[in-house]
């Protein structure tokens, strides 16, 4: 019985931490590259070096940060920025829920500390490592930390060199944000059942972007589309 309990208990050691760092380094290099682009684009908006780095360190969510750059115009639409950030990051809820069985045996302090570093890439790698027999929960922390370091340092680098770039459209950088969003959409696309929520959202967003001023079309489209998906599940 004791043996069973022991094998069920997730370990948390330096070894697992190291494995997380090592196996996540290639992906961290990718994060580093688009972190530079984020920094360059942040520089084009009104964000300064310290503000951009503070955002990368405290929010640490690439997609949401790219998204709000589009909203970052004076006067700052604070509510729209926060609501959009949370909406784009709602996928974290599903990740945290899926990883819960692995973390529930750790102390709350470790769990709630480690979850700060939860990100798409580290979650994917951790789930894969876990299905390959990894039994050390510190893997997630190691993976999260290396991605975190890559994201902050590349933000700082991007903002610093961003001053050299006068017109981002000349380098095609105005396309970077949309391309990232498209890649994220392709990543969350889960087959034909997503056609209704995504299609309705696209339509409603397009119409409300013309009809309603400001950036509310993002939330209006996202809410309408996701609710349409649930309604379809229930009644069609």
């Amino acid at each position: 019985m004791v043996e069973d309990n022991e094998s069920e208990r997730a370990e948390f050691s330096r070894k697992g931490l190291g494995a997380g760092v090592r196996q996540s380094t290639p992906i961290a290099l990718g994060v580093f590259t688009y972190g530079i682009v984020f920094g360059v684009l942040a520089r084009q908006s009104s964000l300064g070096l310290s503000e951009a780095v503070l955002m990368s360190a405290s929010v640490f969510a690439a997609s949401a940060q790219f998204v709000v750059l589009d909203l970052w115009k004076s006067p700052l639409p604070v509510i729209a920025i926060v609501v959009t950030t949370v909406a784009v990051n709602l996928r974290h809820l599903l990740m945290g829920a899926s990883i819960q069985p692995w973390l529930k045996r750790l102390t709350p302090r470790k769990t709630y500390g480690m979850l700060y570093f939860l990100n798409d890439e580290s979650w994917g790698l951790t789930m894969r490592a876990r299905s390959n027999g990894e039994n050390d929960a510190a893997f997630l922390l190691g993976s999260g930390l290396i991605v975190f370091i890559a994201w902050i340092s590349s933000t700082a680098l991007g903002v610093s060199i961003g001053g050299l770039i006068q017109n981002p459209a000349r380098y095609g950088l105005d396309m970077a944000f949309i391309a990232v969003c498209i890649a994220l959409l392709a990543g969350v696309w889960d087959g034909r059942e997503d056609a209704v929520p995504v299609g309705i959202a696209a339509l409603v967003a397009l119409v409300s972007s013309v009809v309603v001023s400001g950036n509310w079309y993002i939330i209006v489209g996202g809410l309408t589309g996701s609710i349409a998906g649930v309604v379809r599940d229930e009644y069609v």
Binding site: T84, A87, R91, P197, A201, G221, G225
Partner: peptide
């Protein structure tokens, strides 16, 4: 459904 709907919006 939320992330896909938000992203396409």
């Amino acid at each position: 459904y939320v992330p896909g709907a938000i992203l396409v919006s």
